[in-house]
């Protein structure tokens, strides 16, 4: 990935980590909970600044909240598509949005995968799938089921030439699941890096 001018130290770290990877990279960002949101936003800012289309599986925050966050961070919404796993689960109404779909909840893995497939099929341009976060998905799914979902998703995006960016909390994620998912990635970026 070529460089983008940025002053954000997290973005600088992420850019440095991605610069040594092959073009079809899939990475996992292992982060502390107190900087998880900043890391995710920095990643999206960096990727969209490079005109990557970000397909975001959000298990942490609803669409409306994310859109406000991204606006504050100066992220261009035309490069964002959100698969929202939160709004409907919390009884909220699925909004009419051209850049979002609303699935029932974070356990609806088959539906999430269908939506990812649809995005990779229909969206034109360089794409990155961002999962925020593996740790939260693990709260709602059995470890082996989630590991199979991630394996299947990463195989799918690799076969379509889509990059992957997985976020997980370093201390709060089941060690075996983290190990299984880590080994499927091209690089694990830690917040200490």
């Amino acid at each position: 990935m070529s460089k983008v001018a940025t002053n954000n130290p997290i973005e600088v770290k992420l850019l440095a980590a991605l610069s040594s990877l092959p073009s079809d990279w899939v990475v996992m960002a292992e982060t502390q909970s107190n900087v998880a949101v900043d890391t995710t936003i920095a990643a999206i800012h960096m990727l969209t600044a490079k005109k990557n289309l970000c397909i975001i599986v959000s298990a942490n925050r609803p669409y409306a909240n994310l859109v406000a966050q991204y606006k504050n961070a100066g992220i261009d919404p035309k490069y964002i598509f959100i698969i929202d796993c939160v709004t409907r689960k919390n009884g909220g109404k699925a909004l009419k949005a051209s850049n979002a779909v609303f699935v029932d909840n974070s356990s609806a893995l088959t539906n999430i995968l269908i939506q990812i497939n649809e995005c990779t099929r229909t969206m034109k341009g360089k794409k990155v799938l961002l999962i925020d976060s593996v740790t939260t998905l693990l709260v709602y799914n059995k470890p082996d089921v989630l590991a199979r979902f991630v394996h299947s998703t990463l195989t799918h995006i690799r076969s379509k030439g889509v990059n992957g960016f997985l976020v997980c909390l370093s201390d709060e994620t089941d060690k075996e699941v983290k190990a299984e998912i880590s080994q499927l990635c091209d690089k694990v970026i830690t917040s200490a890096e």
Binding site: P22, D24, H151, T155, R158, S159, Q183, L184
Partner: peptide, 14 residues
Amino acid sequence: YQRPYKNISDRFKA
């Protein structure tokens, strides 16, 4: 079992 053929063969070639 981890990666599709093209991905792993490209990595090997690189």
